[in-house]
Amino acid sequence: MIRIDHLFIALDDWQMTVSLTVKAGSFCALIGPSGAGKSTILNAIAGFLPHGSGQIFIDGQDMAPLAPADRPVSMLFQDHNLFNHMTVAQNVALGINPTLKLNKQQWQKVHDALDQVELSGMAERLPRALSGGQRQRASLARAILRERPVLLLDEPFAALGPALRKDMLKLVSTLAEKNGQTIIMVTHHPEDARLAADQTALVQDGAIAQVGPSETFFANPTEALKAYMG
C-alpha cells in the first residue's frame, strides 16, 4: 500500500499539498491539466524531489531516508528511459546490476524479460533503431527485472498512437497483476484511466480535487472534473 500523508512540496513560487492512498496491487491514474503537479507527485515518491513536511509510506515503510535506488519503486518517463549508447539488452541488464557485470544466468533473465515484452530479436540493437513503442517496451522489461513492488508511469505512452497505447496499457496491467505490483500512472487521456485504472485522481492547482474508484469517479464528476473534461 502507498500512503501519502500531507506531503508538502515547494518549488520556486509554486507549492502543493497532497494526501493519497493507493491499495497494494491496484492501479491508480492521475489526471489533470498540465502544471497541476501530477509528475511532481511521482518524482516525490521516487525520491527525485526533496519535500517539506508530510510523509510517504510504502507498505508501512517511511521513504524519507531512502535514496531513489533504495526505494521499492521503478519509474518510467516519457523520454530517456534508455541510454542511447547502449544496446537494448545492456539497457535492460542495468535493472539487474547497474555495473553491467552479469553472469550467464542473469543474462538469461534479461532475454526472458525481453521475451515477455516481445522484443526477443532486438537485444543487440541500439535504442535509436527501435520504434517509440518498442523503446518503451524495453524500458518496461527493465522495470520487470527490477522487481520493485511499485511502478510509476510518467506518461510513458503519451507519444504512441491510440491502438498502441491501449496495447501497452494492457501489457503493463497484465505484468503488474502477475507480479503483484502497485501502479501509479500520470496520463493526459481520461480514457486510459477508464480502461486500466482501479482508482483515478484529479490533480489540480497543487491539490487533489477528486479521487475515487474509476467507475464512480467518472460517473459522478465534481465541478472541477467537469471543467477539466470539458
Binding site: 521516487a46 535514496a67 535506488a69 533504495d70 530517456h80 541510454f83 542495468l94 535493472g95 547497474p98 553491467l100
Partner: peptide, 14 residues
Amino acid sequence: YGKQIQQLGMNSKT
C-alpha cells in the same frame, strides 16, 4: 539521464 542513474543506483565509478 540524471534520474535513471539515481534510480538504478549507479555509483560514481559505474
